[in-house]
Amino acid sequence: MVVSIRDVAETAGVSVGTVSNVLNRPETVSAESAERVLKAIDELGYVRNDAARKLRGGVSTTVGFVVLNGQNPFFNDVVRGAEDEASRHGIAILYGNTDEDSSRERMYLDLFEEQQVRGVLISPYGDILPRLERLRSRGIPAVLVDRFGGTSRFSSVSVDSVAGGRMAVEHLIETGRRRIAFVGGPMDMRQVTDRLAGARVATDNALDAVELEVIATTAMTVAEGVAAGTRVLARPRRDWPDAMFAANDLIALGLLQSLVVGGRMLVPDEIALIGFDDISFAAAAAVPITSIGQPSGMIGRTALRILLEESDDAELIPRQTVFQPELVVRRSTATA
């Protein structure tokens, strides 16, 4: 049931005009009346429906897209794929970057709900399913992007990150590395934990003894990669890993920056390096970085297509689309 401004007015015991003033011109309303209206809004879960008021029953031509990290070229490519597909259907995409911040994620979802977008694509941070249920109850479908839903409640489009993590570490083992560090975080991000899980599968299945160390980061950024690499180099040389698997290419680029000692690059002669996402900067780095590739544009196009289908038919059964990753070998993992 959609709560109207009239419902809020009745609950608060004020006129519809007073509710409107609280929402649009709060300075014209007494503190007591404003408090009653805001309490009613909170109790009823009322959301301003500006877009619906404009459309007068029409179909929205906008879709919301919430991504984890707008600085990561991988997400830029995913959004571009969604935009290419959206343009074929006369749809515009409203874009929001959470920067791995749950409060910003909530802000964008509230905004898209208020605007009554046709649907929401989201690369979520943490457990977002209850919030997406609320959106769906208001007629706004959602599709998870770059994360397997792990549920039949929502459609998702992702890459098998567990397989990608296994593939990365198997490659490092094949090149002769036996002391491997996984660098990434935060650990409440599903993408990170899946890639780590895959790395552990590879080490468990190895014929020789392989050590897997976890070096946690607070974010998936170049700066965090630099900091992690600096911490490793501060150890005695005998305690260095002989390979690093970065949870994404931005961390790998930061690690590469840090692994320069006395003007000499330690990669790949002493430490092999592999990333994840295969962004363009990985190939263009001072030492081209081996990476696990994802079909970023296809992920965006597929997610947008599914979202539009579900917005047209709410009875469609949610589907889980999982692409397979690809190992892209470059100089950073040359055989030791």
Rank of each mutant, 00 (worst) to 15 (best):
residue 265 M to D: 07
residue 241 P to L: 01
residue 224 E to A: 15
residue 244 M to Q: 10
residue 262 G to Q: 04
residue 253 L to I: 13
residue 269 D to M: 05
residue 253 L to Q: 03
residue 281 F to E: 09
residue 220 M to Y: 01
residue 224 E to Q: 15
residue 229 G to I: 09
residue 221 T to D: 10
residue 275 G to V: 02
residue 244 M to C: 15
residue 248 N to R: 04
residue 239 D to F: 00
residue 282 A to L: 01
residue 273 L to N: 03
residue 264 R to I: 14
residue 266 L to A: 04
residue 280 S to W: 00
residue 284 A to P: 07
residue 265 M to G: 12
residue 246 A to Y: 10
residue 242 D to I: 01
residue 268 P to A: 01
residue 260 V to E: 08
residue 287 V to E: 01
residue 267 V to G: 02
residue 224 E to L: 05
residue 271 I to A: 03
residue 241 P to S: 06
residue 227 A to T: 15
residue 280 S to K: 08
residue 254 G to V: 10
residue 250 L to H: 08
residue 259 L to C: 10
residue 243 A to G: 14
residue 227 A to N: 14
residue 256 L to N: 00
residue 248 N to T: 11
residue 287 V to C: 05
residue 251 I to L: 15
residue 264 R to F: 05
residue 220 M to L: 15
residue 272 A to W: 05
residue 249 D to L: 09
residue 277 D to L: 04
residue 252 A to E: 01
residue 249 D to C: 11
residue 230 T to H: 09
residue 221 T to Q: 10
residue 231 R to E: 14
residue 224 E to M: 09
residue 281 F to I: 08
residue 250 L to D: 13
residue 267 V to A: 03
residue 237 R to M: 07
residue 283 A to W: 02
residue 220 M to D: 06
residue 266 L to N: 03
residue 280 S to L: 04
residue 228 A to V: 06
residue 281 F to H: 13
residue 240 W to I: 04
residue 285 A to Y: 02
residue 268 P to Y: 01
residue 267 V to E: 03
residue 222 V to S: 00
residue 285 A to S: 15
residue 284 A to L: 14
residue 258 S to Q: 07
residue 245 F to N: 04
residue 287 V to W: 01
residue 230 T to D: 15
residue 273 L to I: 03
residue 254 G to R: 11
residue 253 L to V: 06
residue 243 A to Q: 06
residue 229 G to H: 09
residue 255 L to I: 13
residue 239 D to V: 03
residue 237 R to I: 09
residue 222 V to G: 01
residue 225 G to R: 07
residue 230 T to E: 15
residue 238 R to P: 06
residue 233 L to E: 06
residue 287 V to L: 02
residue 246 A to K: 09
residue 264 R to N: 12
residue 284 A to S: 13
residue 225 G to Q: 08
residue 281 F to W: 05
residue 229 G to F: 11
residue 252 A to Y: 08
residue 268 P to C: 04
residue 262 G to H: 06
residue 223 A to Y: 10
residue 220 M to R: 13
residue 282 A to N: 02
residue 237 R to W: 05
residue 263 G to C: 08
residue 257 Q to N: 14
residue 243 A to H: 03
residue 228 A to Q: 05
residue 273 L to K: 00
residue 257 Q to K: 14
residue 234 A to D: 15
residue 235 R to H: 03
